[in-house]
């Protein structure tokens, strides 16, 4: 089993941080050397949207990966990955608010209200904010582990909203190839949780019924 020492772990984490920042740096560099194509705003919107979904999937893959490999230290990388998902979601939203609406909040809200695919995308982004805010150790303590965990499990719903946003965006142009790939990955990641939950419930159920049987008078 791979088990990095603290120094190796720090190096790994720093490398991962740099890698996770690359898509953003790429956009900045492309903007400067005029490589964002004929429609730069669209390029940025799509790229940040894609990377939000990638990072949501990567974050949701941490637990399954940890369980399959037994590498428990992976959990210590999850917060950073989740925050990158938020970072790209925020860039995506900012592009929309800035370059599509020029900070005209009323116009923006009209758009959010009128168009279902924007509505769900916007809700997903708003729901991500409390998760980002409560990602610190202090907040975990203040909320208490149970409540914190409950709050952070809303990410399952958020990723589904994000998927729906992407699906609807592509629906008008009937271009489902990528949403299908994404949807499958998200479905696998979520179904694993359902499976583990049911398995755990059954096992505790069996244990409990065993206890009950023992107590019965013979």
């Amino acid at each position: 089993m791979i088990n990095p020492n603290p120094k190796q772990f720090r190096l790994l984490k720093a490398t991962l941080f740099a890698l996770a920042l690359l898509p953003f740096i790429r956009l900045v560099v492309y903007a400067f050397i005029d490589q964002l194509g004929a429609n730069p705003i669209e390029f940025i919107t799509r790229s940040t949207g894609d990377w939000t979904l990638y990072f949501l999937c990567i974050t949701l893959a941490v637990t399954p990966l940890r369980r399959f490999t037994g590498w428990n230290w992976l959990i210590k990388l999850r917060r950073m990955l989740g925050l990158f998902a938020f970072f790209y979601a925020a860039s995506h939203f900012t592009t929309f608010l800035w370059f599509d609406h020029f900070f005209d909040i009323t116009e923006m809200l009209k758009d959010v209200y009128k168009r279902p695919f924007i509505t769900v995308g916007f809700i997903a982004f708003v729901l991500l904010i409390p998760l980002a805010v409560t990602s610190t150790n202090g907040m975990i303590k203040r909320l208490g582990g149970k409540r914190w965990q409950w709050l952070h499990r809303t990410v399952y719903g958020i990723v589904m909203l994000g998927m729906l946003h992407f699906w609807w965006m592509r629906a008008g142009k009937h271009n489902f190839e990528k949403p299908i790939i994404f949807g499958t990955i998200v479905a696998i990641l979520l179904l694993l949780r359902v499976y583990w939950y049911l398995k755990q419930k059954r096992e505790t159920g069996i244990r409990q019924s065993a206890v009950v049987q023992k107590r019965q008078p013979t």
Partner: peptide
């Protein structure tokens, strides 16, 4: 409008 976006404005490419 298109059901998913406004047609009131446009971005001139280039």
């Amino acid at each position: 409008d298109h059901p998913r976006w406004s047609q009131a404005t446009e971005r001139r490419i280039g």
